Computed example of a mutant assay.
Amino acid sequence: MNFLGTWLKPVSANEEQIYKILTPHPRIIVFQGIAELDDYNDCLILEHHSNGNLWTYLLNNEIPPLAKQINWALEITEGLSYIHSKAVVWADNHFSNILVTKDLHVVLADFAFSLVSPSLFHKYTTLPPPVFTCLKGYYGIASSHVDIFAFGVMLFALLTRRFPWSANLNPSLDEQFQVMHTHRQYKWNVIEDETLKGYFGMIVEKCFKIVLTDGVQVPMPS
């Protein structure tokens, strides 16, 4: 609910706790406290961003310059690195939970399902959209690699304008499940452009294969 330039979201004790741990930070949506409204349940008061989420933005706007897409990837990694430094696993890392600011930067949002220092064999009860889902993480040891895998999917999509094993950025739910099952078989799509592959191919592969578990370094091509 948009209210006087802010976004009001029904409060959950877990998400309130996560925002108190993570904010303020330039790559995390601004949390302004709790609204106690007579006609509504208590709500989180969050900064409103009229450009919406990154997935919708990519689908409904002209293709941004490659440098802008790489900068978004850098900003996402900045946010992820900070989240993980606070012992938080986002666990719902995908384009719809990344918001585009008025000046076309990105901030991370929606931590309702996030965890603080999850137990070694924690079983997640929720999943992101299937195309972002790290099956190894959701059916095994809980750690930040579920976020790193999803970042690999996003980096691939920003660079190629399509999701792995898909033709575009708008695959149907059935197509997303097929991608998820392909990943279950440890089959990873590769970047076709040789220049981009040279810069980013190894990073994407390491994200997919869960080689990276604590932080991602994205280069900016000269």
Rank of each mutant, 00 (worst) to 15 (best):
N2M: 05
G5V: 02
T6N: 06
L8H: 00
L8G: 00
V11Q: 14
S12Y: 03
S12F: 09
A13N: 13
T23A: 06
T23H: 08
I29L: 15
A35V: 04
D38S: 15
N41I: 14
L44W: 13
H48P: 02
S50V: 14
S50F: 12
T56Y: 04
L58G: 01
N61W: 01
E62S: 12
P64E: 05
P64G: 11
Q69E: 05
W72E: 12
I76R: 01
A87K: 04
A91D: 00
H94V: 03
S96H: 12
S96G: 12
K102W: 05
L104I: 06
H105P: 10
H105D: 09
H105N: 14
H105K: 15
A109C: 07
S117N: 07
S117V: 03
T125P: 06
F132S: 02
L135Q: 14
I141Q: 10
S143K: 03
H145K: 09
H145V: 15
V146G: 00
D147A: 05
D147T: 03
I148D: 06
M154E: 04
M154C: 09
F156N: 10
T160F: 07
R161V: 01
R162E: 01
R162V: 01
S166V: 05
A167P: 06
A167M: 12
N168Y: 00
L169E: 03
S172C: 02
S172K: 03
L173F: 11
D174N: 12
D174W: 08
E175W: 00
Q178Y: 10
M180T: 02
T182I: 13
V190R: 13
E192Y: 10
L196S: 13
L196Y: 13
V204L: 11
C207E: 10
K209S: 12
I210C: 15
V218R: 15
P219Q: 14
S222F: 11
S222C: 12
S222Q: 09
